[in-house]
Computed example of a mutant assay.
Amino acid sequence: MSSLQVIEAKLEAESRAFQQLQKELTQVVENRQRLESQQQENEIVNKEFQHLDDDSNIYKLIGPVLVKQDKTEAETNVKNRLNLIASEIKRVESQLTDLTQKSEKKKQEIAKLQMEYQQLATKK
């Protein structure tokens, strides 16, 4: 196998790895957007609790049924959900940073291999 073929094989492998990283990156971005949407919804609900009286009726949808819920319990659930979403967003952000760095590194490796390939191809 010539060195040109070796570099070509490496280039193909690196390109596939780069495409896989791009897919993962897209998926993580979608996850972050979904989490941000959930966070906004829960923040709206949390703000609405401030406008309610302590004796207001609050219902929670469980499957097809509305179940009456205590205001303090509902507020606690929403605050816990907000905390959970915030920590999940932090985790996804670090994952996003990691994948972005890996993607940039892979891009540089591909560029280097392409230069080597072109140099060898012009020598022949």
Rank of each mutant, 00 (worst) to 15 (best):
M1V: 04
S2I: 01
I7T: 11
E8K: 14
E12G: 11
A13H: 13
A13D: 11
R16W: 12
F18C: 05
Q19L: 14
Q19S: 12
L21K: 11
V29Y: 15
R34D: 06
L35T: 03
L35F: 14
S37N: 07
E43W: 15
I44Y: 15
V45Q: 09
E48I: 02
F49K: 10
H51P: 00
D53G: 15
D55V: 04
S56I: 01
S56F: 00
I58W: 06
K60M: 03
L61D: 02
L61N: 08
L61M: 12
V65R: 04
L66F: 14
K68W: 00
K68C: 05
T72L: 11
T72G: 13
T72A: 13
E73M: 12
A74L: 02
N77Y: 06
V78C: 07
K79S: 10
R81H: 01
N83W: 01
L84Q: 07
I85M: 04
K90A: 08
R91L: 03
S94D: 07
Q95G: 07
Q95D: 04
Q95A: 13
K105A: 05
Q108I: 11
Q108G: 05
Q108C: 05
E109H: 08
E109K: 15
I110K: 09
Q118A: 11
L120N: 01
L120M: 11
L120I: 03
K123C: 00
K124P: 00
